[in-house]
Simulated scan of single mutants.
Amino acid sequence: MPVTCAGLYRLFALLSPAFPVGAFTYSHGLERVIEDGDIRDAASLEDCLAALLRFGSGQADAILLSVAHTAARQGNPDGVRETAALGLALAPSKERHLETSAQGTAFLDTCRKAWLPSAETPAGQVFAALVPQQGLLPAWPYPVAVGLTAAAWNIPCGPTLTAFLQAFAASLISAAIRAVPLGQTDGQRVLHRLEGVITEVCRKADKAHLSDIGSAGLSTDIASMLHETQYTRLFRS
């Protein structure tokens, strides 16, 4: 199913850097990797992000988004809940749990106040059942929140995955530009070269199941744990 102009507009808005989820305050553990000297230039940043996307949290988040999107479109709230619970459980450190849950919950809170989807479709009904219009929200992992909302807005999964991973990479590149530091042009070169990696990860995730999730991103997972006690920090993770 192709994305419509209205769907594209909504996707741009939901995954814009201006959407108030606080992504700019998190580095996903990269600040510690930079502190240890393993990211020191554009080439080492590209290598780290490509590995995260292919073998670490990037591919796991892409699968979580895809599965949540499918469950919502099928009118299956239990499937979305199961995916959300797994998404929170997969966080390898306190800070990474905060990163995904704070962003996911803020995302849904903004959606219910400003971008509330219609409840006329099965996915819209799942959104209405799981995201009450008032009161505190439980913790939601960010990719699951995005998958649920995109389905409720009738935005296809493929474009949503691409936009989500592009925003993920762009946010981490922005963190590296500030912390390494790197120039803006170097950051854009890295984002450009990651296009093929993101396309590959999206293609695989679009047909994946929860049982396909696995991670070999151990160094960045450990870095996110060490970041908790890092003396000088710009970021919350």
Rank of each mutant, 00 (worst) to 15 (best):
D47P: 10
L52I: 11
A23R: 14
G37T: 07
V33S: 04
Q59D: 00
A43E: 08
Y26I: 08
A51V: 09
A23G: 14
H28M: 11
E35A: 12
G56Q: 08
D38E: 14
T25P: 00
A42F: 02
R54M: 08
S57M: 03
I34S: 05
A23V: 15
L45G: 05
G58E: 01
A51H: 13
I39E: 00
I34C: 05
S27P: 05
D38F: 12
S27E: 12
A50I: 07
I34D: 00
G58M: 03
R54L: 12
S57V: 03
R54F: 00
G58Y: 00
R40K: 15
L52C: 11
T25I: 08
A50E: 15
A23C: 13
E35K: 10
C48E: 06
A43N: 05
A50N: 12
D38Y: 14
I39C: 01
L30E: 03
E46A: 11
H28F: 12
E35I: 00
E46T: 09
R40L: 09
D41I: 06
A50W: 05
I34F: 03
A50P: 13
L49S: 06
G58A: 06
S44C: 08
F24V: 13
G56H: 07
D36C: 10
E46F: 04
D36T: 13
L30V: 05
A43G: 04
A50G: 14
S57C: 02
A23T: 13
S57E: 04
T25Y: 10
A51I: 06
G58N: 03
S27H: 14
E46K: 11
D36R: 15
G58I: 03
S27C: 15
I34M: 10
G58F: 02
D38V: 13
A50V: 11
R40D: 07
I34W: 02
R40P: 03
V33A: 08
S57I: 00
D36E: 14
G37V: 02
E31P: 01
